[in-house]
C-alpha cells in the first residue's frame, strides 16, 4: 500500500520539502492557568522521525496537540506546514493537513469498525481504495470490520485508529504513545508503518516512554521537561537515509 502524503504543501510554503515543517519559538500554552508549555523552542525538518521523551506532565502531549492545531498559543509563535498557529484560520488549516493519534482513539463505540473507518475517511476526504487498503494492512478488515468498537480490545482499537490515520495520508504524523495496547506483531507493524511513511516523505513526531524499542527508527530525540525542551540532542540514526550528526 502507498503511504505518499495526500495533502500538497500550502501555497505559501511550497518549498517546505527541504525546510522545517514545524517551527515553535518561545511557545507558552496555558491549560487552566497552568503553563503546560513554558517558552518551548522546537523545529522539525521534513522527513524526520522525532521522538518526544519526558516524564508524565512534562508537556509532550501538549506539544503534539499544539502541532495539531488543537491548542491555542498564549505567547510565542509557531507554524506547522506553513500554517500560522497564532491564528484561528491557521490552526484550522493545520488540523486539516496533519494526522493525530492521541491517547484517545476518536472512535464511536456504537459503530462497527467499518462504519467508523468509513465515516472518518469520508470526513477526512480520504479515497475509498486507501480506506480498504489501510483496513487490510492494519488487520481490521474481514470479520473484525463488522464488530462494534465497544467490543474491541485496546490493541484492535489502536489498529482501527491507525487505519484511519493511514487512509488520511497526512504530511505530518503526530503520535502520542502509539504502541500502547499493541501486541508484539502490532508494534512491529507500527514501526514498519512509520518507516514506510517517512520513506514516502511524511514527517513524524512520536511521544513515547518506550525507551529502546523505537530508538532504531528515530532520527532524533527531544527531551521535554517542565514545558520546555530541556535537551535537544541529534541522535545517530538507525534507519537508512537519516541525518547523522
Amino acid at each position: 500500500m502507498t503511504l505518499d502524503s495526500r495533502d500538497p504543501a500550502p501555497s505559501a510554503a511550497g518549498d517546505l520539502q527541504d525546510k522545517e515543517l514545524v517551527q515553535l519559538q518561545g511557545v507558552v500554552c496555558l491549560m487552566g492557568g497552568f503553563p503546560a508549555l513554558a517558552g518551548l523552542d522546537l523545529t522539525v525538518g521534513s522527513g524526520e522521525i522525532v521522538g518526544l521523551r519526558g516524564a508524565n506532565g512534562a508537556g509532550k502531549t501538549t506539544v503534539l496537540r499544539l502541532c495539531a492545531g488543537l491548542v491555542t498559543l498564549s505567547r510565542g509563535s509557531g507554524s506547522v506546514l506553513g500554517h500560522d498557529l497564532g491564528t484561528r484560520a491557521g490552526r484550522r488549516s493545520t488540523r486539516k493537513a496533519v494526522g493525530l493519534l492521541g491517547h484517545d482513539t476518536s472512535l464511536y463505540d456504537d459503530l462497527t469498525v467499518e462504519q467508523n473507518v468509513r465515516f472518518w475517511a469520508r470526513a477526512n476526504r480520504a479515497a475509498e481504495p486507501d480506506v480498504l487498503a489501510a483496513m487490510d494492512h492494519l488487520g481490521v478488515a474481514g470479520r473484525v470490520a463488522t464488530v462494534k468498537v465497544a467490543g474491541l480490545s485496546a490493541g484492535q482499537r489502536r489498529r482501527t485508529a491507525l487505519a484511519i490515520l493511514v487512509a488520511r495520508r497526512p504530511r505530518l504524523w503526530l503520535l502520542d504513545e502509539p504502541h500502547a495496547g499493541l501486541d508484539h506483531d502490532g508494534r512491529n507493524l507500527l514501526d514498519q508503518l512509520l518507516m514506510d511513511a517517512a520513506a514516502a516523505g511524511a514527517t513524524i513526531m512520536v511521544a513515547t516512554h518506550d525507551v529502546g524499542r523505537i530508538d532504531d527508527i528515530l532520527t532524533r530525540t527531544v527531551i521535554v521537561h517542565g514545558g520546555t525542551v530541556h535537551e535537544h540532542p541529534i541522535r545517530p540514526i538507525g534507519r537508512p537515509g537519516g541525518t547523522d550528526v
Partner: peptide, 17 residues
C-alpha cells in the same frame, strides 16, 4: 455524550469539518 467519549470531538475538529 457520544462526542465526549474517546476524543471524537477532537476527531471532528481534526477532520477539518
Amino acid at each position: 455524550g457520544v462526542e465526549a467519549n474517546d476524543g471524537t470531538l477532537d476527531g471532528l475538529r481534526m477532520a477539518g469539518l
